[in-house]
Nucleic acid binder design. Structure first.
Length: 604
DNA sequence: ATACCATGTGTCC
DNA sequence: TGGACACCCTGGTA
């Protein structure tokens, strides 16, 4: 299916729809430059405004007015229309597994003009375009490339890096896309996840069928989940867009509301998007059992998990801007870092409370704010800001300007970052925001993990790898791909104790483990396939796949009937039963799967 | 198979 | 300051 075909075209009379696929291919392989130049000359007198008008017209072709003219796209004449810029003569889109940018748009990766993503120097550079922040400007691009050429590309090869492979996967665990993850503080094989509809799940990635789903922990997007620490290892805190901060038990599903920002609920005609408050960034200071949570209005709240009371509320970020993450320093729990849509991350010292500039005076509870120690300015929204996990002295931020920033010392946080790493993760709409996460097992505090937005061609298959990067050099250490995982993985977390990375992608969870070279499975094959330019695609891995929502079109009706029958029978429900995905069917311990529904049932 | 849609941020006026 | 709209390598459902 040609992904580049625009809906507008389909509304028009496409006269030669039946043009053969070879023809299509031929058309798309036209050198964009030639065609573009030619076309630009042709369109010389046509300004962008007109373009827009034309677009609007065609878009409204089916509108009630009916007088809009249909456009005709004579494919035979190679008059392609680009759905990105609306100009004719070229088409942005996939050709096979390789995406061709619109030549009139800046590079998707580094956002600079003059080249496309395919030829972006940062994409080719061995250090992933990593540069001292001061050097990072358009006129240093050449210098970056020069330096690369001087120092050689040998550093790209790092044999000691393991190859990662999906070891276990639970497909369609959630009913909506997965938004957050956290690992159990004491049990190495347990991960919890939350989804876009407020569903939370506990999954055992060693016994892949073992999972528990609580259907309606929240009534909206679960933004963050954090375990309450080893002494309270069945307790989780979660913050969601329904404005609730809850602490709940993973074994019973029993939950307590610690904060409800919208106590009156949604009142039709009164409540709107402006008055509704959502909770975003969440962290737990384990020692003090202090829950820190930010909301959609730039406010941050401290809640004492023991007394279950709010002990602080303050406007720490710009009004109306959401606080995307909160992080308590792992060594000095007095230090708090927040990141926000107001293009900053900030560090606070919560020992020193000073008179607040604009905290909420009305309820009298918040008259002082923690002392602001540093402001980390960014050119765009900051998706996340985390202290390094062991010493707490480094800082890693994810910003939607496609740069990952590293500060080597907290004390220099007020200055420019020590490193900026160009990396494709600018996408917030439709997807959970990407957040780069430190690997807590790396004592050098260099390794971190982040999902990649732009796809890469792996032997004829377009996949979105998960990148393991070195914060000290910007070097790409590993890229995790699997043939069965074709969707983007915005949510990734390295395990704090064992060699596991868990990824949340769409409704599914995947657990990756390193494999040695000789037993290297399909993922390695996939990685190699890229270099060898194999066109055969990737062999499915032999991982323990289990699906809880068999989505085969052929099975769908059967499943619905079965679900209906179950529903009627009103038996303690297990959800759509585990269907072994690929390789394992011997281990289908039906009895061990469980969906607990203490309050409401998982799905209809 | 295809249409549609939910959705967040930036920019322009 | 707020509304309109562009963005345009999504994933799921009807």
């Amino acid at each position: 299916m040609p992904r580049w075909v625009d809906a507008r075209e389909e509304e028009g009379d496409v006269d030669e729809e039946e043009s053969s696929s070879e023809e299509d291919e031929e058309q798309q392989q036209i050198d964009p430059d030639d065609e573009v130049l030619e076309q630009a000359a042709e369109d010389g007198e046509q300004d962008p405004g007109q373009d827009n008008d034309e677009r609007a017209q065609t878009g409204a072709a089916a509108g009630p007015s009916g007088q809009k003219q249909k456009i005709t796209i004579p494919l035979g004449n190679r008059k392609l229309v680009c759905h990105v810029c609306g100009k004719r003569g070229h088409c942005a889109g996939f050709v096979g597994s390789i995406y061709h940018d619109c030549p009139f748009k800046p590079c998707y990766l580094c956002k600079q003009t003059g080249h496309t993503t395919m030829t972006c120097p940062y994409r080719i550079a061995p250090e992933h375009g990593c540069a001292q922040a001061a050097n990072l400007s358009s006129d240093s691009l050449l210098a970056t490339v020069l330096q690369r050429e001087h120092s050689g590309r040998k550093r790209e090869v790092h044999l000691e890096q393991p190859t990662w492979q999906v070891d276990a996967a639970v497909l369609k665990l959630h009913s909506r896309r997965c938004c957050c993850l956290d690992f159990h503080p004491t049990k190495d094989n347990i991960v919890v996840s939350g989804d876009k509809k407020g569903q939370v799940a506990i999954w055992d990635f060693e016994r892949v069928h073992e999972r528990t789903v609580y259907g309606h922990m929240h009534r909206a997007l679960t933004n963050h989940i954090r375990f309450m620490g080893p002494l309270h290892d069945t307790q989780c805190a979660s913050a969601a867009s329904d404005g609730m901060l809850k602490v709940w038990d993973i074994e019973t599903g029993f939950d307590k509301e610690l904060l409800n920002m919208n106590p009156d609920g949604w009142i039709q005609g009164v409540t709107d998007e402006k008055t509704w408050v959502m909770l975003y960034g969440l962290d737990v200071g384990i020692e003090r059992q202090l829950i820190v949570v930010g909301d959609s209005k730039g406010r941050v709240y401290f809640v004492d998990a023991r007394s279950e009371e709010k002990i602080f509320q303050g406007q720490l970020h710009k009004k109306g801007m959401k606080v995307t993450t909160c992080h308590v320093n792992p060594v000095n729990s007095n230090l708090l870092m927040t990141s926000s849509n107001d293009w900053t991350a900030k560090i606070f010292d919560i020992r020193h409370m000073s008179t607040s500039v604009d905290s909420d005076q009305s309820n009298g509870t918040a008259t002082k704010d923690p002392m602001q120690v540093a402001v980390l300015n960014h050119p765009k929204v900051v998706n996340s800001a985390y202290f390094s996990p062991i010493s707490g002295s480094k800082i890693l931020t994810t910003c939607i300007d496609n740069r990952l920033r590293v500060w080597d010392y907290v004390l220099s946080a007020n200055e420019a970052p020590d490193r900026e790493i160009v990396h494709s993760h600018d996408f917030n709409r439709y997807l959970t925001p990407f957040r780069a996460e430190w690997d807590p097992k790396d004592s050098a505090e260099r390794t971190f993990v982040v999902g990649r937005y732009i796809s890469e061609d792996f032997g004829g298959v377009a996949l979105h790898p998960i990148d393991v990067l070195d914060a000290s050099t910007g070097r790409l250490l590993s890229q995790l791909v699997d043939a069965n995982l074709s969707t983007i993985c915005p949510v990734n977390k390295p395990h704090p104790r064992v060699d596991v990375i868990v990824s949340g992608s769409s409704r599914s969870l995947y657990a990756w483990r390193p494999v040695s070279k000789d037993e290297g499975g399909s993922s390695q094959a996939a990685t190699e396939a890229r270099g060898k330019g194999q066109s055969t695609g990737i062999v499915p891995s032999s991982a323990n796949y289990v699906s809880f929502d068999a989505d085969d079109a052929t099975d769908r009706k059967k499943r619905k009937a079965a679900e209906a029958a179950q529903e009627n029978a009103k038996v303690g429900k297990k959800g759509a039963k585990g269907k072994p995905g690929k390789a394992d069917s011997d281990d289908d311990k039906e009895g061990s799967s469980k969906i607990k529904e203490p309050k409401e049932r998982k799905r209809k």
